[in-house]
Simulated assay, not measured.
Amino acid sequence: MAPYTFKNGITLKNRMVMSPTTTMSSFYDGHVTNDEIAFYGARSGGLGMIIGEVANVIASGKGFEGELSIANDGDIAGLSELAHAMKRNGTKAVLQIFHAGRKSNDQILRGNQPVSASAIKAAYPADSQTPRELTADEIDDIITAFGDATRRAIAAGFDGVELHGANTYLLQQFFSPNSNQRTDKWGGNRDDRMAFAKAVIASAHTAIDQYADRPFLLGYRISPEEIETPGIRLADTLAFVDMLGDSAVDYVHTSMGSAHRTSLNDKSDHEPIIAKLVAQLAGRKPLIGVGSVETPADADAVLDMGTDLVAMGREMIREPQWMEKVADGDEASIRYQLSPSEMAELKIPRAMQDYLNGAFYSVMHFTTDPEAAADYQNQAAPMEGFEKKM
């Protein structure tokens, strides 16, 4: 598979990317654990790039237990070890950064109420808590925190950061007409609701300009649709992607359970969403396609849709040496199923094993699962922030 060079000069040795894969295995304070280092170290070396699991940029942004932190300078030392493990044999290492917003709760936040653009409870899951509306000063603090997190990622040795604007987290919450009903400069019509994302991109880009002593990537991940009403629809996302195409980001990354998904809301629209995104970007930014990519043929099919790079998540959990085996013509030995008895051997942390056996059980191709794997072609995946079958 051919290399890929970004406009800022960073070259990936191939076009295969490991998408962010939550291990839920950080210490209580967000510091990196040896389990995380071992997990990523086992999967580096063959791929062109690994995008590490999400890290919160500020204490109010923590979304789940076992989550990485990049909110303090004290996090840099551990993150440096993680970056080193991810960069074996020339693999590039990007760290995803975020604020969970209303996708948290007062238990995770140690008694504090979750926050969001507006004081509107998420529909999914059903036990979501009503967030507190952020003040203007708090919004400014969060924007600054994204820049500070980018500085720390540079210091830790990563090759880039990815702003997590998908899966119903805070960046998406500010763009959504469901979760953002503000009347100040951070709310309003569709274009006005892009203001927070634009400010976060600018904050991260400024940090790169100021602190990076080498080419450093800035990516942005999106979820194309919401299923709530009101909510983000494809027309909204295409407008948002148009903005990204003219922004300082170096790439755009989708978040979907299937790379071939069509609209969740308009069943008469049979054009794959990825094809729409490729057309909207029109070559201005590279697009990373993702979703149920398992075989080399699957990867080629996504690239054939016009994406520049293709990412795998679940398959990289099952098969850490996927790229090496493909390069050696050894596809016959690739694990497309996961044996529960091999999870320790595959360096899958214990906390991650538990949730793979839970919410993701139906899509992990467990050798002990008698049912056919679930298909995300026409429904949202668990990581996308929904719990409703389509």
Results as ranks from 00 to 15, higher is better:
residue 142 I to P: 01
residue 181 Q to F: 01
residue 186 W to H: 06
residue 170 L to K: 02
residue 119 A to H: 05
residue 183 T to S: 15
residue 144 T to F: 11
residue 198 K to T: 05
residue 182 R to K: 07
residue 157 G to H: 02
residue 176 S to V: 00
residue 122 A to M: 09
residue 133 E to L: 08
residue 232 I to K: 04
residue 136 A to I: 07
residue 226 E to R: 02
residue 131 P to Q: 10
residue 219 G to S: 11
residue 146 F to C: 02
residue 160 G to L: 05
residue 166 A to N: 11
residue 215 P to Y: 11
residue 228 E to C: 03
residue 129 Q to N: 02
residue 195 A to M: 15
residue 135 T to I: 14
residue 135 T to H: 15
residue 175 F to T: 05
residue 158 F to W: 04
residue 169 Y to C: 08
residue 221 R to A: 12
residue 202 A to P: 03
residue 200 V to D: 09
residue 210 Q to L: 03
residue 216 F to K: 02
residue 146 F to P: 00
residue 183 T to F: 05
residue 195 A to Q: 13
residue 217 L to M: 06
residue 191 D to V: 08
residue 218 L to W: 07
residue 130 T to P: 00
residue 152 R to Q: 04
residue 215 P to Q: 12
residue 137 D to H: 01
residue 193 R to C: 04
residue 156 A to T: 06
residue 160 G to P: 04
residue 149 A to K: 00
residue 184 D to I: 07
residue 147 G to K: 02
residue 153 A to T: 00
residue 185 K to D: 15
residue 207 A to G: 09
residue 139 I to D: 11
residue 199 A to G: 12
residue 140 D to A: 15
residue 158 F to A: 05
residue 173 Q to D: 12
residue 151 R to P: 00
residue 222 I to G: 13
residue 145 A to C: 03
residue 230 P to I: 10
residue 120 I to N: 03
residue 215 P to I: 11
residue 187 G to N: 08
residue 155 A to G: 00
residue 135 T to R: 08
residue 167 N to V: 02
residue 221 R to V: 05
residue 143 I to C: 10
residue 151 R to D: 11
residue 221 R to S: 08
residue 198 K to L: 09
residue 142 I to W: 01
residue 174 F to V: 04
residue 137 D to W: 00
residue 116 S to F: 15
residue 186 W to C: 10
residue 171 L to P: 00
residue 143 I to K: 14
residue 160 G to F: 06
residue 214 R to T: 07
residue 129 Q to A: 14
residue 124 Y to K: 03
residue 198 K to N: 05
residue 164 H to Y: 15
residue 215 P to W: 08
residue 173 Q to R: 01
residue 146 F to T: 01
residue 147 G to R: 02
residue 153 A to N: 03
residue 204 A to Y: 00
residue 178 N to T: 13
residue 161 V to D: 15
residue 183 T to N: 10
residue 218 L to T: 04
residue 151 R to H: 10
residue 151 R to K: 14
residue 220 Y to T: 00
residue 216 F to Y: 05
residue 160 G to K: 04
residue 182 R to A: 09
residue 118 S to E: 15
residue 152 R to G: 04
residue 163 L to K: 02
residue 155 A to W: 00
residue 212 A to L: 03
residue 202 A to K: 10
residue 124 Y to C: 06
residue 166 A to E: 15
residue 199 A to T: 11
residue 208 I to P: 03
residue 185 K to E: 13
residue 221 R to L: 12
residue 184 D to A: 13
residue 141 D to S: 13
residue 146 F to Y: 14
residue 226 E to T: 01
